[in-house]
Write a protein that binds this DNA or RNA. Sequence first.
DNA 1: CTGTTAGCGCGTTCAC
DNA 2: GTGAACGCGCTAACAG
Lengths: 333, 333
Amino acid sequence: MVDGRVRRVTSADVAREAGVSRATVSYVLNDTPHQSIPAETRRRVLEAAARLDYAPSAAARTLRRGRSDVVLCLLPDWPVGPEVGALLGNLSAQLARRGLTLVAHPSTREDRPIAEIWKAITPAAVLAFEDLSEAENAAMRAAGVALLVALLGRSRQRRHELEVPQQRVGRLQAEHLAALGHERLGYAYPDDPRVAIFADPRREGARAACAALGLPAPVTCTVPLDGAAAASAVRAWRDAGVTAVCAYNDEVALAVLAGLRVCGLRAPGDLAVVGVDDIPAAGLADPALSTVTTDQSAVAAHLAETIVEVIHGRTEPPGPGDEITRVVRRAST
Amino acid sequence: MVDGRVRRVTSADVAREAGVSRATVSYVLNDTPHQSIPAETRRRVLEAAARLDYAPSAAARTLRRGRSDVVLCLLPDWPVGPEVGALLGNLSAQLARRGLTLVAHPSTREDRPIAEIWKAITPAAVLAFEDLSEAENAAMRAAGVALLVALLGRSRQRRHELEVPQQRVGRLQAEHLAALGHERLGYAYPDDPRVAIFADPRREGARAACAALGLPAPVTCTVPLDGAAAASAVRAWRDAGVTAVCAYNDEVALAVLAGLRVCGLRAPGDLAVVGVDDIPAAGLADPALSTVTTDQSAVAAHLAETIVEVIHGRTEPPGPGDEITRVVRRAST
DNA sequence: CTGTTAGCGCGTTCAC
DNA sequence: GTGAACGCGCTAACAG
């Protein structure tokens, strides 16, 4: 009561309370296999633990095991939108169900070696959006236990690659526009080079869809988030006979809409536009933006499954199905 | 080379290499005060550590010290925008400079006791956006070392309160509109009840500014992120003689713009609008949205400072200055 | 002054 | 079921 410093409840306390050894406590609490402990003893231990409100020290366990129960997600240095936020939220819930805790580190450029970050956490797994350097990769593998999962690797072959089907996003956009009768498509590529890991596969998907449909490849224009600059992209597309564009995401799509306004044109009559993500602003734009969305909770479930597999050293399961991505049709197309 | 399992380099290895005891290694590497170690010995130890590429085990240190060098940020369950993302990025950099690692936990609703999360990390400090329950609060304080900082407390008095001057945001909006000659203001309140912790102080700031300027209190309307719904708010404001509205944030402001369109009206002539955050879509809207921005790096610097003070048990420094928030004037006002 | 010894912090796990 | 060692860094007490 009066003492401020409350001594932690340790497994020794539980052992004493239950009248057994610390080893037994550990075995019971961890459900250690190949260890036959009578139900009666087990009950005593569990009750004692509950009575004392025992919580094992994560630090001690980590020290002993060599890894914690934390999954560390290294966020990219480019601004993540609400989609990634939603993904992390779902992933966190999925991992929690499996006894893992997800935390994210907002990486502030390469100002600090990645090693410093995971060494501070000793994670069971690291989830990165981009491939890490071979050195960092090796360091992680060596430094004990932390495993690595690359969310989106640059076509490296031998890495755990967990590709959210970004290609499918682009494919869906192109197919949607083609179904509306458009034959000459454009691709609105983002201005920020940092998002290329996402943009390239998406555009590739659009290209593949066009090829499959016998249409010419999309005309790519880089579109800055600024109406005037977007206007010149719009003019370029018009000159090329493009009647509809797939945008990298909703923000770029909004820029295209702004560019249309600058030119005195309007979607979808003069140029149809379809974005990606369905951010709130998409539905509020004039005209409302058609867009492709992904079921983040389905992606998260698959991701969690894969992470657990990788932690246990098993191979990863097959990729997620195609049903997780769909088109939201609105006025802009 | 052939062996996969590389044994960690420990302080014992460094001690052996340098020909000293482990204690000495610890003293040198931690620059322990009141411990005079000759430059020569110090050099030997440092060189040995460098040569062996020694990195102390965070887990062991945490076990011994009772706390890690990690600062845990508990994200709210409502979707955080790019502003919070930017804040975390800056904060991460600032904390890194002080030897602390920032990680964020995407909280997925109260489906899991907060205790489970920080127990998995043993953080030096926890940064929360909302007040925690008294029980959780006590648990953290008791469970050893983790300290608590509430970013935005609900007018509780005795809590470490680190209030980014949200009130000032609202004040600035109102003052901006008043300076443009508007006398009857509206406040566009968000539909999502979860963001009340931010919305209430902002609106309060707008109200205070009006009072100070001798204007009537702003007319509050809740504005869903949907044009049709926003239209009725627009009509209500027009009926009340409101000529300009402060929106909770840019998304709500965009909704107001959409509502205006639905009514066949237009900003700023029929109703001036000012948002908060300057998200990309704000500049791309029609008309472009005026908005209030905050210098997140300044906020982060102050936050980092406060966190360090709190970890060291000292009192917190005074709040940040008023210069971190400013208006970006565009067509909508 | 310089540096060492010894033991703590706590859960896990092998050998008996 | 148990004793004991282990993982690794920190630091009070102490000896040269």
